[in-house]
């Protein structure tokens, strides 16, 4: 059987099935909910593990940019309507879209591996949310939030990247398509 391969990552290219995309979307939504339940032992609001980024990065590597874009947009809207409000949708979208764009571009250069891509995605996510907060909240202390959340984004991105390194090959072996 002839198999197409991603020229940058050498993963087999799979045609997405709607069922698996639905499973990934459900996973992203439930991770977003679980994450809100995990207490973070840091007094800075906004620091979190980025469990949904785990799913989005996996989708980006297993399928591609378009599928990841669909899933990340849908999960932000769904989580926003279920547990949040219009503002959490706004914050979520800004973070999700910038993070996914950065990750897709970095992946496309072919220079970086999953961990580097994921770390940059985490940083981009937090930069976008801090900028959104700066635009919406007058007097938001950007100069303190930005570096702290960037550092948190690197850490969380590296952790989810390591997890993705273990997850993505298993998804392929499991036959996700």
């Amino acid at each position: 059987m002839k198999m197409m391969r991603d020229p940058y990552t050498d993963f087999p290219l799979l045609k997405p099935s709607i069922a698996f995309l639905g499973i990934f979307l459900a996973l992203a939504v439930i991770f977003g909910y679980v994450e809100a339940l995990i207490p973070v032992p840091v007094p800075v609001p906004g620091i979190k593990l980025g469990l949904t980024n785990l799913v989005i990065t996996a989708v980006l590597y297993v399928y591609g940019y378009k599928e990841a874009l669909v899933i990340t947009t849908l999960r932000v809207v769904i989580i926003g309507f279920l547990f949040g409000n219009l503002f959490s949708i706004l914050y979520g979208l800004s973070g999700a879209l910038l993070s996914l764009t950065v990750m897709a571009i970095l992946k496309r250069t072919g220079l970086f591996g999953v961990i580097g891509v994921s770390a940059a995605g985490g940083v981009a996510h937090n930069i976008a949310q801090v900028m959104t907060a700066y635009l919406m909240v007058t007097g938001f202390p950007v100069r303190w939030y930005m570096p702290i959340l960037m550092l948190a984004g690197v850490g969380a991105g590296i952790l989810t990247g390591i997890a993705d390194v273990m997850i993505i090959p298993r998804l392929h072996r499991f036959g996700v398509r």
């Binding site: 990552t9 050498d10 993963f11 087999p12 970095l106 220079l111 970086f112 591996g113 999953v114 961990i115 580097g116 770390a119 940059a120 940083v123 100069r143 930005m146 570096p147 702290i148 960037m150 550092l151 984004g153 690197v154 590296i158 390194v165 090959p169 392929h172 072996r173 036959g175």
Partner: peptide
Amino acid sequence: MKDFRVRKYIGIPDLLLIIVLIAVPTAM
């Protein structure tokens, strides 16, 4: 799918990227 090859996941570019991403906020 045994023939599935794994590209090396963390290389010099990744390390440089991560170092930059840590250095910039630390400087700020």
